[in-house]
Design a protein around this nucleic acid. Structure first.
Lengths: 146, 146
DNA sequence: TTAATACTTGACAAAAAGAGTAAGGTTTTA
DNA sequence: TAAAACCTTACTCTTTTTGTCAAGTATTAA
């Protein structure tokens, strides 16, 4: 249950690769593809979205590739995933685009809303820097501190 | 992203209805169906699973229906949802049935694992009693205390 | 200038998951 | 003994997911 799509997963892994080139070394799609074992065509779709969202920028021509738009500690996992999959919406009635018919007499509405907020808050606290620095302990601490 | 299926959602809402009859008044599928606007046939599927899991018990014959197996404060949302949808597994490599090929060189593995644990822990703290008593403030507090 | 490198776009399709229906049971008890 | 209520299995329709494919456009090193 509550599974993340491959787009979100691959997107984070691609951003991790790009972050490793920060601040000056552009990373090509081919490199990401080989390191993360995801097809070039699929990555193109994903990186295109991230570029339009302003999270990365691209450099064309030989020697080109992708670069982070800003420093790794300013890019949260939440920002990556929400660009690729839209906002966290545990139920369809919490989706901003769909809306809820029952809201007030739906006892569970607040529950799912709270869970969504919990998830979002967690993903906001983790950045690319945490990933790149292999700073897994801080992640563990964050979990411990539920 | 991270959407719960209708089975999980309806399951929680059905359990809420049954909890309102606790400890002695059996609640029929028809009542749940009408109150929660879910078809009887679909509810049968869902309640069947919850009964097999031991969360509810059924009383047959006229005047029969469903009852909680234990008191509402002992039944967490986590237990309901995990019966209906399986364990929280943000990515397929965290699914106990699938396993992960890359584990060690997959930098994001720990991240998704941590998120899953976070979600599970949250859902474990919320029980049917919180729902029935309209105890939304305690839920809000739990969220605030991330 | 030009060819190699690299990014861009949109359409499409196979596969999997989700949502729900249908039909025909069995069990219980007023 | 029939109505009330639960039980089971199978099936289908729809949506989402997961990619692939093909044909571009832009840039720049040589």
């Amino acid at each position: 249950m509550l599974r993340l799509s491959t787009r979100g997963q691959y997107g984070v892994r691609a951003m991790y690769e790009i972050a490793r080139g920060y601040p000056v070394q552009p990373v090509t799609i081919k490199e990401i593809s080989e390191n993360q074992d995801v097809s070039v065509a699929y990555l193109e779709q994903i990186l295109n979205k991230l570029r339009k969202a302003g999270l990365i920028k691209s450099v064309k021509g030989p020697g080109g590739g992708y670069l982070l738009s800003t420093s790794p500690e300013k890019i949260s996992i939440a920002s990556i995933v929400s660009e690729l999959e839209g906002p966290v919406a545990i139920t369809s009635c919490l989706d901003p685009e769909e809306g809820c018919v029952r809201v007030d007499n739906c006892v569970t509405h607040l529950l799912w809303k709270a869970l969504g907020e919990q998830i979002e808050a967690f993903l906001k606290t983790i950045t690319l820097k945490n990933l790149v620095s292999g700073d897994i302990y801080s992640i563990k601490e964050k979990v411990a501190g539920i």
